[in-house]
Simulated assay, not measured.
Amino acid sequence: MPDQTSPGTLLSHLRARPPLVHCITNFVAMNIAANVLLAAGASPAMVHAQEEAGEFAAIAGALTINIGTLSSGWLRGMETAAIAAGQSGKPWVLDPVAHYATGFRRAAVDRLLELGPAVIRGNASEIIALAGGASRGQGVDSRDGVEQAEESARLLARVHGATVAVTGVVDFVTNGERAARIEGGSALMPQVTALGCSLTCLVGAFVAVRPDAPFEATVAALATFAVAGETAASKADGPSSFSWRFLDALAGLDASLLDRHARLRCA
């Protein structure tokens, strides 16, 4: 019997019934995030206004919230959407971009965490700081290694009852009890603006497919990204050609190819 939570199986399910993913993301990421979701087979919607965010979150398969270009108005929309998602039983994903940089961001993330995200995805510096540790992050850039954030991720997962993903050279995912590492990707990925933000949206798409299995869905999303990144890098000459090749590689992935090339290890 095939593994019903393997990355390839979940990708097949996603494409068979494309989920509507409500993305409240930053100005920089909107275009690439929408294209990433379309290439994967999902249906993106960039809706952030408080007046409609709650209503939209209730009809979407999943919600993703990214605080990259935060404002008071957008924060009200984020909170409204997260509340509605919770009331509707819809999973949502939090990307706490550079939350440690200012008091406004710290307070915003504290409020959002209280609303119960199913998944938290960030770089190592963001996850360390979110767990109360001292990170070396500067702005949106991580200066800490993924392995340095693993215990912080486990702590966050236990405290918030969430799956936590730390992304970097080798990704780490945990729900506080189980953990996995995902290898792959490319050194060119950090050189393309907003690919990490797009990954958060892709996590939302996979969690929409399996809201009952956020750990497995998150691992599948990260594996999909890693394999597409590795494939694109094999033919790219630099960041520019990598960017469009990545979308092509993502669109060209199928279940068997993904499961054959995904490099997953229990941690």
Results as ranks from 00 to 15, higher is better:
K235S: 15
V169H: 12
N31C: 05
R263G: 05
A232H: 05
L257I: 09
S240R: 15
W92N: 07
M189D: 04
L130P: 09
L63G: 03
R17F: 15
L222M: 08
N66K: 02
E51N: 09
E79F: 10
A165Q: 02
V219L: 07
T69F: 07
L188W: 00
M78H: 03
L199H: 10
A165M: 00
A82D: 05
P190A: 02
V173C: 07
A221W: 01
T200S: 14
A53R: 00
F56S: 01
H261I: 11
P211T: 00
A255T: 00
G137N: 02
P96A: 14
G204R: 10
F242G: 04
S142T: 13
R263T: 12
V36G: 10
A45F: 01
F27C: 15
R105T: 10
C197L: 09
V169P: 12
T25Y: 13
L155W: 09
A213N: 09
T218Q: 06
I59Y: 05
R245F: 07
A262K: 07
R15W: 04
A149W: 02
P117S: 06
I83R: 15
Q148I: 12
R76V: 14
G185W: 05
I83C: 13
G204A: 10
F27M: 15
A101W: 14
F246G: 10
R136F: 11
A98F: 11
A129C: 10
V219H: 07
H99Q: 08
P214A: 15
R245M: 10
S125K: 01
D3M: 04
Q191C: 00
A49G: 13
S152P: 01
E183S: 12
